[in-house]
């Protein structure tokens, strides 16, 4: 009843917002949040395609579950890394951490 394109547009907008957040934000936790936003958009896409394009299969749904699992793992690890960085550098702002610099 809901057209597929509407769902896809929602997902595209959410994804773009996530990209903007990742690029613009300074705080590492905020960046992680934006990444979660992107993952969410991806999940919406998976489910939408699964339901609309392959209604007789469950592949897309199962894949969405795996995405959620990976996202949870990623969130846990990333937050642990942020914690470690914060403890070493006394900051969670990514532009103040430039260990990559020559």
């Amino acid at each position: 009843m809901i057209p597929l394109q509407q769902v896809l547009v929602l997902s595209a907008l959410l994804f773009s917002l996530g990209v903007y957040g990742v690029l613009a934000r300074r705080n590492a936790v905020l960046i992680i949040m934006s990444v979660e936003l992107m993952l969410n958009a991806v999940n919406i896409n998976f489910i939408a395609f699964a339901v609309y394009l392959a209604p007789n299969k469950v592949v897309g749904l199962v894949f969405a579950i795996f995405v959620i699992v990976v996202a949870a793992a990623e969130a846990g690890l990333a937050l642990a890394i942020i914690l470690r960085v914060y403890r070493n550098e006394r900051t969670a702002n990514v532009d103040e951490v430039d260990l990559l610099k020559w």
């Binding site: 990742v22 990514v94 430039d98 610099k101 020559w102």
Partner: peptide, 17 residues
């Protein structure tokens, strides 16, 4: 060119995106 290498992750991420 080394001036373009800031060592700051957001810059690299921006370049990729």
């Amino acid at each position: 060119l080394k001036l373009s290498e800031t060592g700051k992750i957001p810059n690299y991420a921006l370049a990729i995106a």
